[in-house]
Amino acid sequence: MSESTDPTGAGHKKPRRVVLKLSGEALREDGSQDNISPEIVGKMASQIVEALKEGVQIAIVVGGGNFWRGISASNRGMERATADYMGMLATVMNSLALQSMLEEMGVEVRVQTAIEMKNVAEPFIRRVAIGHLEKGRVVIFGAGTGNPFFSTDTTAALRASEINADVILKATKVDGVYDSDPAKNPDAVRFDDISFHEAISRRLKVMDSTAFSLCMDNNKPIMVFDMNEPGNLKRALLGADIGTLVHAG
């Protein structure tokens, strides 16, 4: 993403406002019995702080898979809505962990939840969230959309549309979107950028279908990048040309 091109096109300049989508598993160290690694969260937080210093407004949606996956529990016999609500609570725990680490680094943070829990977080209110961002605070959206049957990818797409973010940054374990699974096909080809329509026609799994449709309908580009590469989180937040940009074309 170059410094001088259209932030909604295949090239990006430094975005003004982003939604960063983190998986819950990203907060956990591989092979560890701990659900959250303070060291990993600290590394994430330090890169977020550096991007904030450059003037980027940052909202974050974090999953809960390091604690609980509603759909997995429902596949084992639990009632789906209940399992999903439990997953929403897991995202709040991750949100609070990230909030705590960022605050230790001197950043003002607000956690807003789609399920009201006054003792630990603010309720999600769109205008309040935008106000926090404009004041240089990080806003973390917890508890998903507040409804079962929706993923945190959908939460990221919804919140990005509501707060008018320039781009969704989807942090993953791969360095972009490929034409086939690179773990299974050594000849898989990575796209530098791809349109929403081409991603659909190729049946590429960028996000779940609900989230992807929201992004396409509201023209919210998605940058898919490898967050395990040192420094990549900061580079993505500052608009570097990494990963794959999925856009309107």
Rank of each mutant, 00 (worst) to 15 (best):
S2C: 03
S4D: 13
S4A: 14
T5D: 11
T5P: 00
D6W: 02
P7L: 09
P7F: 06
G9P: 06
G9E: 13
G9R: 07
H12Y: 15
K21W: 12
E25M: 08
E25A: 13
E25S: 11
L27V: 03
G31P: 10
S32T: 10
I36Y: 09
S37E: 07
K43P: 00
M44I: 13
A45G: 05
I48Y: 08
V49I: 08
E50L: 08
V56F: 01
I58Q: 00
I58A: 01
G63C: 03
G64V: 11
G64W: 04
N66R: 11
W68Y: 14
I71P: 00
N75P: 00
G77I: 00
R80A: 09
T82R: 12
D84G: 10
D84M: 11
G87P: 03
M88T: 12
M88F: 09
L89K: 05
N94K: 06
L98R: 01
L98N: 01
E103T: 15
E108K: 15
V109C: 07
A114G: 14
I115D: 01
I115H: 00
I115C: 00
I115Y: 01
E116N: 07
M117G: 11
A121S: 14
A121W: 03
F124R: 11
I125Q: 12
I125E: 05
G131I: 06
G131M: 05
L133V: 09
R137Q: 14
R137Y: 08
I140F: 02
G142M: 10
A143H: 01
T145F: 13
N147R: 10
T152H: 06
A156R: 11
A160K: 04
A160G: 12
A165I: 01
A165W: 00
D166L: 12
L169T: 02
T172N: 05
K173D: 13
V174L: 14
D179F: 05
S180W: 00
D181G: 09
D181M: 10
P182D: 02
A183L: 12
D187R: 07
A188D: 09
R190Y: 07
H197N: 15
E198H: 13
I200D: 10
I200A: 08
I200C: 09
I200V: 14
L204M: 02
K205W: 09
M207T: 06
M207R: 07
D208I: 09
T210V: 14
A211R: 04
A211I: 01
C215A: 15
M216C: 06
N219K: 13
K220N: 10
K220G: 00
P221H: 06
P221C: 06
M223A: 10
D226Y: 11
M227G: 01
N228S: 10
G231Y: 08
G231T: 03
N232S: 15
L233P: 01
A236E: 07
L237S: 02
L237M: 06
L237H: 05
L238P: 03
L245W: 08
L245V: 15
G249S: 13
